[in-house]
Amino acid sequence: MILVLFIPILLMTAVVLMFTFNPGKKKRAGLQGKAGLWMLYGYTFILLLSAAAYLLLPMEGVTSASEAEANHGEEQFPYFYDIFHTGNIEELPDEWVVKQWTLNFDRDELVLEAPENDINVVNIFVEKTSDLEGTIEATFYQTPVSVNGHSVEKQYHPSIQVQEGTLEIYPSNIVQLRYRMFQTEFPFEQFTGDKDQRWGQSVTGSDSALYIKVPEHIQVRSSPNTFNMVTP
């Protein structure tokens, strides 16, 4: 109930009011005279300054949570993973490519290792293709990660290494992102914005996949269900 929530505030306001009010004959040193008025003038001046400063702050306007949900949402690509299974990755928009590797590999057998993949699950797909010879191509796709519609600056991608015939995929350090979201006060939004979503925040871009193309003749082995073999 709102009231209960605000009891501490009520008490605190009462204390302050008692402190500053002096209706009776009580002697009140110090806080006499026009202190109150000067405080008000000074405070208003500071407020106006900060309002001006606020306008200069480097901020990026973002849409409200619900709108962000709409245009970046997963709904647009519900069958994200099917595309990988079927291998026709051309359909994916280019901006989803996060990182591409091309590695030389001239052996006939490839061992695929993805240690600690249980924490940061990366879906791995392997496609055997005839137009590659002696090299392996790996591309990491991710639906754009956005916070309330603001696409993040740094993107995550796993690290890949080839050593004596084994392709190691291991997680790289986590991308730390800190954001401050300035929300306009409720009176400004009461009559315009969709208030219900005010506190909602949405981070989109949960789907990611690592697509590896290997030359046709290479035999790929790994521990069970670390990757999916693409069947075009």
């Binding site: 002096n22 209706p23 009776g24 004959k25 009580k26 009140r28 006499q32 005279g33 026009k34 202190a35 109150g36």
Partner: peptide, 8 residues
């Protein structure tokens, strides 16, 4: 007679 204290 009481006058508000902020007034001198």
């Amino acid at each position: 007679m009481n006058f508000p204290s902020p007034l001198t």
